[in-house]
């Protein structure tokens, strides 16, 4: 499933909880440490194999703003006195929560975790990609805390 070509593809797909898909540049999306981790093939998550990240806690309207921000950030990477990005005020808090989720720094040492079915010991850093790969989002909270 996970061919070299798909690993290197320039674009990745982000899917919101209400099934909106956003195809964004990999470089832009990897601004988020969470997405970067999900898509890193060496971590062997399902997301990296499918080249698709699903967010069950982020709705389409919010994810749209987040994607917009990815490009906004990329565009202004090396500039000074950047104008603030505009977004609908009513989405402010939802975007904030999404930004926190996607941006949380995850330099936490990764322990050994269990999949739901067989509960074998898995080391996420060294584990090779196989068909039993589990989704990053399902273990996200365990990784963070």
């Amino acid at each position: 499933m996970a061919t070299e070509a798909s690993d290197l593809s320039d674009y990745v797909t982000l899917v919101s909880s209400d099934e909106f898909s956003f195809v964004v540049q990999r470089t832009a999306a990897c601004l988020s440490p969470a997405i970067k981790r999900m898509l890193d093939p060496t971590n062997g998550f399902l997301e990296a194999k499918m080249n698709t990240c699903r967010f069950d806690n982020i709705t389409g309207v919010v994810l749209e703003q987040v994607c917009e921000y990815f490009y906004y950030n990329q565009k202004h990477q090396n500039s000074k006195d950047v104008p603030d990005m505009d977004f609908p005020t009513e989405l402010c808090l939802e975007i904030l929560i999404a930004a926190d989720y996607l941006g949380r720094n995850m330099n936490v040492p990764i322990g050994n975790l269990y999949t739901q079915n067989e509960r074998p010991r898995i080391n996420f850093v060294t584990r090779p990609i196989n068909d039993n790969a589990i989704a990053f989002s399902s273990v996200y909270d365990m990784l963070c805390f």
């Binding site: 202004h76 500039s79 950047v82 603030d84 904030l96 930004a99």
Partner: peptide
Amino acid sequence: GAKSLSQLCIER
């Protein structure tokens, strides 16, 4: 570069 997204949201 740009402010972080959460910073923007918090300010708003």
